[in-house]
Design a binder for these strands. Structure first.
Length: 787
DNA sequence: CGCACCACAATTTTT
DNA sequence: TTGTGGTGCG
């Protein structure tokens, strides 16, 4: 039973902390001040989740457990209470702090580099250099950091190599060939996915092989043998794939009491972002790392769990309260992103799911515009509709990058791109080939990897004959065979190639190659990474071979090779660890999704999946059709359907001001034309929150099955017909450079420049009041007249 | 060894 | 419809 003094002390202390977080709403503040023990934070879309995470960390750093404990300092006095209630805020804060936490005892885990970088930079903005001591990292980079110290305990060197998914795939393909397995029945992708699932269950290859044998299932046994070979090859190469990073970190912690207790003592506070995306292994990792103090805060939104297919289990979030009996739960439901109508639409859709914690977003924001539903005849008309709306928005003064087009399948971008190109709308498609996936970049990184770890057969094989240096397939097969028989690496065999009579023919070429590699290895000991890279580019003859043929493709490749240099320089300037190891670590966990945002003013096009976490003033959700979204594969399964619905919820909740949903009655997919009904998700939005934009004559929304019409017959649309280059020229409004004009929104101005662009003109108008604006002529003309 | 041609498959994706 | 990967020829 707390004494009166204790109660007053605790209350006074709490209000000191509280005063620091008055800029937050009540629930956010509650989350920030709940620092002790397990906490499940259900944070809806746009509810200020990252802000809460940051402020929670600030609270922990400044005040320790002050806002959430009944413990008093041993020397607590009446004077302290006076100080805390007094006007001297500095003194009050000092008195309130109770075991403030050093930054290096805090671990904040995210999924993506981007999220980690955002966390870091916002913490740095608040704290300065101190922020660098907080472990704000991705799951994978945190594991690498732990493994780099301790990998020897589980049979790897501390300088192990990291394989990306492409590397894993190459390894599996080689194994399929070596084991003489039929690739048709056992696609590499499938095998890798089984291996990944087994790793998620903490099953190593031997364990799985046993399970497979006992089940008597031939297929499983075949896959298990692949797993076994895969595991061996990676171990021989001193390599870990992405799953291994987590798996091995978990095993390391489970099997070594000293290491586990070191980290459990170290991490007094653990925070996990996007908890709904975690898999079983990640759950284990988090519970191991936080196992000391159990001050674990997980943040997530069960309604935004959309990665089941890659192992995420919503179970982690749903059963958090069972795992931690004393867990507290706080919901953040106030939304600061979208207008009321858009939120209502999102809520209306998601409430049809049964497997959820139950949350309902609300806003103090105004109603805003009604979301629109447009029914198009086919994907081209749909694209045209989207383009029109974007041009309207642009003419109103919005930027291109205020707009985003979201779709279920990457292949849907084609029709959009075509329409955008034709109208000169600048756009960027996300999710295509990435910089670090390009062959030339992979080649250069393979060289660096071999220099850093010559035992890495996979990377060595990648570059042994790239550029061609007279080491053909036959020689490579022989090398691999010898290495396999002797249980050594290919690098070792080449080093002693003169000893083998069967390598007599290529031995001169092999010697030249291995001397070059050895020379580079030697240099890597003393040379800074950037200079070493220059050496690699020259000495390997890679750049020379690109310059030998003057094609556009090769010019681009050469540019990319040079671009990688600027990445290295950038790394050196930002990092303390400027060794080759350090750089390779960073790069192997890096995707260039991170620098998307700072790109030029462009409309964004991406899948709904990749839009998670982003927001745009105007969102187009295209392809809202049964069979496409929800996808045909989800139709049979309740569980999958709910995941699709969550996906829809994610899409809708990206929109801040305007939401356009569209549906094509006829769509070409994979070369076949299909007729689809409007997506059930669109139907789930009640009429008071959805403006049905366009209903073709004689057809209702509920009956959209209709006889396919030839697409040349244009529907009686209120929108412009498909614009071919000819009609475009004919219908161009009559404006020219030098014209004085009056614009509805921007007032008077003069046209200073006109640039033809995809059947339209980009006009530059110098307005008297609002400065110079660049508009697309056709869209702007409606709001303009000549003076 | 490099290129051309044909067969074939084809959610969603971070690290 | 599109992209990729494997095969066969010059």
């Amino acid at each position: 039973m707390a004494t009166d003094f204790e109660q007053r002390y605790i209350k006074a202390r709490k209000s000191v902390v509280e005063a620091d977080f008055m800029h937050l709403n009540e629930m956010q503040r509650k989350a920030v001040m709940t620092t002790q023990g397990p906490l499940l934070l259900l944070a809806g879309a746009g509810s200020g989740k990252t802000t809460v995470l940051i402020n929670r960390i600030l609270n922990i750093l400044r005040y320790g457990s002050a806002s959430d404990t009944t413990q008093l300092p041993p020397n607590a006095s009446e004077e302290d209470i006076e100080t805390m209630c007094g006007n001297n805020t500095v003194a009050a804060r000092l008195a309130a702090a109770y075991e403030p936490c050093p930054p290096w005892n805090i671990l904040a885990i995210t999924f993506t580099n981007k999220a980690a970088a955002e966390l870091k930079s916002r913490l740095e903005a608040n704290l300065g250099a101190v922020a660098n001591d907080i472990w704000a990292q991705t799951f994978h980079s945190a594991c690498v950091r732990i493994l780099r110290r301790n990998a020897e305990r589980i049979g790897f060197s501390t300088s192990f190599t990291i394989y990306d998914s492409q590397d894993s795939q190459s390894v599996i393909k080689r194994i399929i060939k070596a084991l003489n397995i039929d690739e048709k029945n056992y696609p590499p992708r499938m095998i890798l996915s089984v291996i990944s699932k087994e790793k998620d269950k903490l099953h190593l290859a031997d364990h799985y092989l046993e399970i497979a044998k006992q089940s008597g299932d031939m297929r499983q046994t075949v896959i298990a043998n692949c797993y076994k070979a895969y595991e061996k090859q990676l171990r021989d190469a001193d390599a870990m794939d992405f799953d291994d990073l987590i798996l091995n970190a978990v095993r390391l912690l489970q099997e070594n009491d000293d290491i586990r207790s070191y980290y459990q003592k170290k991490f007094k506070y653990v925070l996990v972002d996007e908890y709904q995306d975690t898999n079983h292994l990640q759950y284990l990792l988090v519970s191991l790392l936080s196992g000391g103090y159990e001050n674990i805060c997980v943040v997530g939104d069960d309604d935004q769990s959309i990665y089941k297919f890659r192992g995420a289990t919503i179970e982690n979030i749903l059963s958090f309260e069972n795992e931690y009996k004393n867990a507290r739960v706080i919901k953040l439901e106030q939304n600061y992103r979208s207008t009321a109508h858009i939120l209502a639409a999102a809520n209306a859709v998601i409430k049809n799911n049964t497997e959820r914690k139950g949350k309902s977003l609300w806003t103090e924001d105004e109603e805003g515009e009604l979301p629109h539903l447009h029914l198009a005849y086919n994907q081209d008309e749909e694209a045209q509709y989207v383009a029109e709306k974007i041009l309207e928005g642009y003419a109103e003064g919005m930027r291109w990058d205020d707009h985003a087009v979201l779709y279920r399948l990457n292949s849907q971008s084609n029709a959009m791109e075509y329409a955008f190109k034709r109208r000169g709308i600048p756009y960027k498609v996300y999710g295509g080939m990435r910089f670090f996936d390009r062959a030339e970049i992979k080649d250069m990184l393979a060289y660096l990897n071999v220099i850093s770890n010559p035992q890495d057969d996979l990377r060595l094989l990648r570059i042994i004959n790239t550029p061609t240096r007279g080491i053909g397939n036959t020689s490579i097969e022989k090398l691999a065979q010898i290495a396999n028989e002797e249980g050594t690496s290919i690098y070792d065999v080449i080093n002693r190639c003169e000893e083998y009579p069967q390598l007599k023919t290529p031995s001169a070429h092999l010697r030249l190659f291995i001397d070059m590699i050895n020379n580079l290895i030697e240099k890597s000991g003393t040379m800074p990474v950037d200079e070493l890279y220059d050496e690699v580019v020259i000495r390997t003859g890679y750049l020379k071979s690109l310059e030998a043929k003057d094609t556009q493709e090769n010019v681009t490749k050469a540019e990319n090779v040079k671009e990688l240099k600027s990445n290295i320089l950038n790394y050196i300037s930002e990092s303390t660890d400027t060794t080759l190891f350090g750089f390779l670590d960073e790069i192997s966990l890096y995707t260039d999704l991170d620098n998307l945002d700072k790109d030029a003013d462009c409309v964004s096009m991406m899948t709904i999946h990749s839009s998670k976490g982003l927001e745009f003033p105007v969102v187009f959700l295209v392809g809202a059709e049964e069979g496409l979204f929800p996808s045909a594969r989800s139709l049979g399964s309740h569980e999958d359907m709910e995941e699709e619905r969550r996906l829809c919820y994610v899409a809708i909740s990206r929109a801040k001001e305007r939401l356009y949903i569209s549906s094509a009655m006829q769509r070409m997919l994979m070369g076949k034309t299909t007729n689809n009904r409007i997506s059930r998700f669109a139907e789930e939005i009640p009429d008071e929150h959805l403006k049905k934009d366009y209903i073709p004559k004689g057809r209702s929304f509920s009956d959209t099955s209709f006889d396919a019409e030839p697409r040349r017959q244009q529907p009686q649309s209120k929108f412009a017909p498909v614009i071919t280059s000819k009609t475009a020229a004919a219908t161009l409004p009559d404006f020219k450079t030098g014209d004085s004009i009056m614009h509805k929104s921007f007032g008077e101005g003069e046209i200073t420049k006109m640039t033809p662009m995809g059947g339209d003109f980009l006009v530059e108008i110098s307005f008297n009041c609002v400065g110079t604006k660049r508009l697309m002529l056709k869209a702007a003309a409606r709001l303009m007249e000549k003076l």
